[in-house]
Structures are given as structure tokens and as C-alpha cells.
Computed example of a mutant assay.
Amino acid sequence: MQTLTLNNGVQMPALGLGVFQTPPDETRAAVAAALDLGYRHIDTAAAYGNEREVHGFAKSAGKLGVEQIDLLILHQALPSDFGRTLEAYRALEKLLADGKVRAIGVSNFMVDHLRALLDATTVVPAMNQLEIHPYFQQREVQAFDRDHGILNQAWSPIGGITFYRDSGHASALEDPVIGSIAAAHRKSSAQVMLRWGLQQGRSVIPKSTRPARIAENLDAFDFELTPGELATLDTLETGKRGGPEPDDITLTAFGRPIPEA
């Protein structure tokens, strides 16, 4: 497993397992399979309702069954009430200072959100978790993160449940461009997309509940895409976001009860 070093020196496996929208029972089985295969990086959230099944502050640490969380991030910027975002991030800074977490970061923060955060807080986020796949690459945010020592992590790195294209493909796995590159390496289309992210220095957290697919996703470290293949994948950019627009996030539209909170 390739590792990446965060801006505070903490090392993290480059590839992990996502459990977004996975029911608790399926989460337990998927995480068990992943750990057996060698995964040591599991991504979950309080809002997913399956933290307790991801065994490996405050309430999250208790549900996870751990005394220290490796990386704790804010799920959204909440630009409609950014003061609350700053309060939440300062709470993360306190957890970091107290040794309750090893690193802190953010998710779905755009450049304006990051600038405002950096101006008002002390600790530069170790990570910004973003929707990144060949069809939506967010290069401006990625560049800002790199310039400030913030690691980019891709959620939905193979398009996932939010994937769509004008071409009519129901899945990124059906894309003939990706398929031809996959065939040349005797790999799957999913492995090619994961390799595209890994080779460009990102962390990737594909989601799956099927042990065979979880194993397949892990097998993305024994081949290398050529510069031409990387460039070809870059040309698939559509500019269309699959997830919600970060500036549209409000508590009224996206707020939800947190299980067991």
C-alpha cells in the first residue's frame, strides 16, 4: 500500500474504503473484508449512520471504539453561516492540540471557503476531500490545495452513484476511452481511474460493499499509466458536478439528525 504524508508529518494509506450510504449491516461486512485484505484507511461520517460499524470526539470516537481518531474533517463549509464553520474548525484545532486526533481537515471546501478559513484559524487543513473523477476534476481547488500543502482526497473517484454523462453511459465503467486504457494494462476501468488519481498525488476512497470489488480496488498499485494515458483521461472533464454545489449547502436544505448524537 502506497502512503501519503500529510502536512504535519502523519502518514496515511493512499487508498481507502468509503462507506457513504451503506447500511450498517453491510458496512460491518464490507469493513471486515477490507481489513482482511489489508486496508487500513476507512472513511465514514456521523451523518452516514454507520460509524459504530467502522471499528478499527467525543461521540464519534466512542461510536468508533477508539481513543484517538487519525483524521477528523468537517463535512461541508456551510457558507450560509460560515461563522459556525469557523467555530467547528476551531474545535477541531483544540482536539488536535489535546492529542485527541492526529490530523484535521475539511471536505468540499472551495477556494473562497479555504481562503476565509486560513485567514481566521491557525492550523492549515491536512486534507480537503473533494468530488474528483475524470469527468469532474476541480483543478482550481486542487491547485490551491497543493500551493498550501493541503492533500487532495477524491470521493467518488470512479464516478460512483453521482456519475452521469451526456453520452448516455450509465456508468463510468462503460466508457470506451477508459476501457481501452484498461485493456492495454489488463486492468479494470475502475483500477485505471483509481490509478489516475493515485499517480497524480491524490488519496482515493472508492466505495464498495462487494469483497471482490474491494479487493479489485486495492490492486491499483502494480502498474503505471503513461503520460499520454493520463492526458487522455484528463480530456474527459465535463465540468459537471455530481454532488451538491458547495455554495448551496444550508442547514434548511441539507441539515439532518445525526444518529446517536
Results as ranks from 00 to 15, higher is better:
Ala190Tyr: 07
Gln191Gly: 00
Gln191Pro: 00
Gln191Asp: 04
Val192Gly: 11
Leu194His: 12
Leu194Pro: 12
Leu194Thr: 13
Leu194Lys: 10
Arg195Val: 04
Arg195Tyr: 02
Leu198Phe: 05
Leu198Trp: 03
Gln199Tyr: 01
Gln199His: 03
Gln199Asn: 11
Arg202His: 15
Ser203Gly: 15
Ser203Asn: 08
Val204Phe: 03
Val204Leu: 02
Ile205Glu: 10
Pro206Ile: 05
Lys207Pro: 06
Ser208Asp: 04
Ser208His: 03
Ser208Ile: 00
Ser208Pro: 00
Arg210Gly: 01
Arg210Tyr: 00
Arg210Ser: 08
Pro211His: 10
Pro211Phe: 01
Ala212Thr: 02
Ala212Cys: 00
Ala212Glu: 11
Ile214Lys: 13
Ala215Thr: 05
Ala215Asn: 07
Ala215Cys: 08
Ala215Trp: 02
Glu216Asn: 07
Glu216Thr: 00
Asn217Ser: 13
Asn217Met: 09
Asn217Gln: 11
Asn217Pro: 08
Leu218Glu: 04
Leu218Trp: 14
Leu218His: 13
Asp219Lys: 14
Phe221Pro: 02
Asp222Arg: 13
Asp222Gly: 03
Phe223Ile: 09
Phe223Asp: 07
Phe223Thr: 10
Phe223Met: 10
Glu224Val: 12
Glu224Arg: 13
Glu224Leu: 09
Leu225Asp: 04
Leu225Lys: 04
Leu225Ile: 07
Pro227Ser: 09
Pro227Phe: 07
Gly228Gln: 13
Glu229Trp: 01
Glu229Gly: 08
Glu229Val: 06
Leu230Val: 10
Leu230Arg: 08
Leu230Met: 15
Leu230Gln: 11
Ala231Phe: 02
Ala231His: 05
Thr232Phe: 04
Leu233Ser: 12
Leu233Tyr: 09
Leu233Met: 14
Asp234Ile: 09
Asp234Met: 08
Thr235Met: 11
Thr235Asp: 14
Thr238Pro: 02
Gly239Met: 07
Gly239Asn: 09
Lys240Gly: 00
Lys240Trp: 00
Arg241Phe: 00
Arg241Asp: 02
Gly242Thr: 04
Gly242Pro: 13
Gly243Cys: 13
Gly243Lys: 06
Pro244Lys: 11
Pro244Ala: 09
Glu245Arg: 12
Glu245Ser: 03
Glu245Gln: 10
Glu245Met: 07
Pro246Trp: 04
Pro246Ser: 03
Pro246His: 10
